[in-house]
């Protein structure tokens, strides 16, 4: 069996404690949440941190709650908690639809929102959901707390705005009354990473789209989103023709790479096809259907 190289380990009891431990253990220390991305890399010895700071016992990083006009999700909230959250189900069915297709039920018991966002895998589902919903990340460091729009959170594959010595503590999603949302994903098999996914929210009011967000994953979309397609749709009626045109813009904005999940032309097609399907459902849902 694969085994990691040696490292030091410390269990943090609070965010302040975690930041102090990160400072103490230096640049080659990493925080560990669910561990389902980091530990396999360490077992392959592709990642070899000097120290792991365990965030699993930090109560203040848990919980899903409403604060003002936002839903606040703690960084250590597990995938399984997102799946079963009544708050998220009420406001954004996109979460449940996406979570049903993230890894498998056992992995979802450990994997966390923060871990997924910070791993920044180009095929991560929650990154697409976060970009679709135009959420914000709350990052805490020795110098204090700052917020970053999720659409600016990722610097590229496996890179985020979280600097050495900092921790992602929360992800916040604005509540949009009347929004419909949906997630569409193609995977080769249950539990596989996405071949392509599209997640959207749409607010239809007075017969036109007044707000929308389109998130995409595994298709090389900048910051997991398709802003030009969103702009196109604003102010237009959610007709099949308009939704298809928006989906086409989304598909054209992607830059997928071929891998064993599929060739680039297929993934680009999926970006279009899945966006269209998600837009249809979200628009219907926003109109109370």
């Amino acid at each position: 069996m694969q085994t990691p190289a040696p490292f030091d380990y410390a269990k943090a009891t609070s965010v302040a404690d975690a930041l102090a431990l990160l400072d103490k253990h230096g640049e080659e220390a990493r925080v560990i949440a669910g561990g389902h991305s980091l530990l396999p890399m360490m077992k392959l010895r592709l990642a070899r941190p000097d120290a792991l700071i365990d965030l699993n016992d930090i109560a203040e990083l848990r919980g899903i709650r409403i604060e003002g006009n936002e839903i606040v999700v703690g960084a250590m909230v597990r995938h399984a908690e997102i799946l079963s959250s009544a708050i998220l189900a009420e406001h954004y069915p996109i979460f449940r639809e996406a979570e049903h297709m993230i890894a498998d039920p056992i992995v979802r018991n450990r994997g966390t929102v923060g871990g997924s966002m910070c791993q920044a895998d180009p095929a991560a589902d929650l990154s697409a959901v976060g970009s679709a919903l135009k959420g914000t990340a709350v990052i805490q460091g020795a110098a204090g707390t700052r917020t970053v729009a999720l659409r600016d959170f990722h610097e590229g594959p496996y890179e985020t705005k979280v600097q050495a010595g900092e921790i992602l503590t929360q992800v916040r999603y604005p509540i949009r009354p009347g929004a419909g949302s949906a997630y569409e994903k193609v995977e080769r098999r249950a539990g596989d990473w996405a071949v392509a996914s599209s997640g959207v929210f749409v607010v239809v009011s007075g017969g036109v789209v007044t707000d929308c967000g389109i998130g995409l994953t595994a298709v090389g979309a900048d910051h997991y989103c398709a802003p030009a397609a969103e702009e196109f749709l604003i102010g237009k009626a959610p007709t099949e023709e308009n939704l298809a045109a928006a989906a086409k813009i989304a598909g054209d904005s992607c830059n997928p790479v071929a891998d064993q999940r599929g060739p680039a032309d297929y993934k680009a097609h999926l970006a279009y096809e899945l966006t269209l399907r998600a837009l249809r459902r979200a628009a219907r849902s926003s109109q109370g259907a």
Binding site: Y9, G35, R110
Partner: peptide, 15 residues
């Protein structure tokens, strides 16, 4: 009380 995959968890995390 929650099923987890023990190949992807450190024993120290179960302390």
């Amino acid at each position: 009380n929650e099923p987890v995959k023990s190949c992807t968890m450190l024993a120290v995390m179960a302390d």
